[in-house]
Design a protein around this nucleic acid. Structure first.
Lengths: 154, 154
DNA sequence: GTACAATGCTTGAGAGTTCAACTTTCCACC
DNA sequence: GGTGGAAAGTTGAACTCTCAAGCATTGTAC
């Protein structure tokens, strides 16, 4: 009954796994080594830096970086300890917390960005032609499109 | 000096991150829920099941699943606790350990496989056309090709 | 044959993630 | 205006991963 993967699919799948794993690890290692933070923390700082007044609600931020509420809560707690992010209670809805990027956090991000972008180029874009970049974008959009991604059983 | 990403690259990069993250999480969740193990453990069982006599040296296995020696050592320790893998010392080189997939481990793998393959289809292959699958394979090969992936500074 | 480096693997501590509660606040309804 | 449920976040425990250090064993050079 199971629709097993044929040889081509098998190869594609394993290549995809290996490639994405490798990129993730390389970026994590680079950021950890050069800036003392994992990639997920970097993504949080980036997203905050782009937001109006450098602040976002926790849930919005979580959705934006593709993180669970719990993960984000833990992460922001660590970022707050380092003084890179501050949590401010929302006046109009007291369930809500604002996460605010501090000046110090922005400085750390600015310092980390060039090395990170270099790593992204080295691991991904420098290896692909322009057509492939377009194809990859298209493919990833399809994967994300209407991303139910749920098991029918659940 | 930094070669920043242009808008198209930026979008591609974020789509790629989101897509690969999403697939990883979906697979991990499915396997954890239905078979009580993370995806990395599943990969270890798969690789062992394909090996001659269902056994491999730890270092070989680590390379094969793209894991650090340390990670594999921890993982196999857990798998051994569950009785799915056994470690056997090598006679000819006593530094070496063989990891052996047990009958019980094979049974668990066989039980887990259909649900996993379904998840892979649902999250990836069902969303792409045949051309895109080919393109994706090609792209991932390029990413892995001659994968130095090292920072010049190191 | 004895020092010394390299190899194979393991270990422990620190850090991040997950999952299932749990608290607080808001909203809708009667 | 109370009540029940939904929404927003947090917390703690269990688990995995990483990194650096460590222990044997093997290979190499003198």
């Amino acid at each position: 009954m199971t629709r097993w993967l044929d040889d081509g699919e098998q190869r594609t799948w394993r290549a995809f796994l290996a490639a994405s794993q490798r990129i993730q690890e390389e970026l994590d290692r680079q950021l950890q080594r050069d800036s003392g933070m994992p990639h997920t923390y970097y993504a949080i700082l980036v997203r905050l830096s782009e937001a109006e007044k450098r602040k976002m609600r926790m849930s919005e931020l979580a959705g934006s970086v593709g993180s669970s509420p719990s993960r984000l809560s833990h992460a922001v707690a660590r970022l707050e300890e380092r003084g890179w992010v501050r949590r401010v209670p929302c006046e109009s809805d007291r369930r809500v917390s604002w996460a605010v990027l501090t000046d110090e956090g922005l400085a750390v991000l600015v310092a980390a960005a060039p090395g990170h972008v270099e790593a992204v180029r080295r691991t991904l874009f420098d290896r692909l032609g322009p057509e492939q970049v377009g194809q990859l974008a298209e493919i990833c959009m399809e994967i994300l499109h209407d991303a139910v991604l749920q098991d029918p059983a659940s």
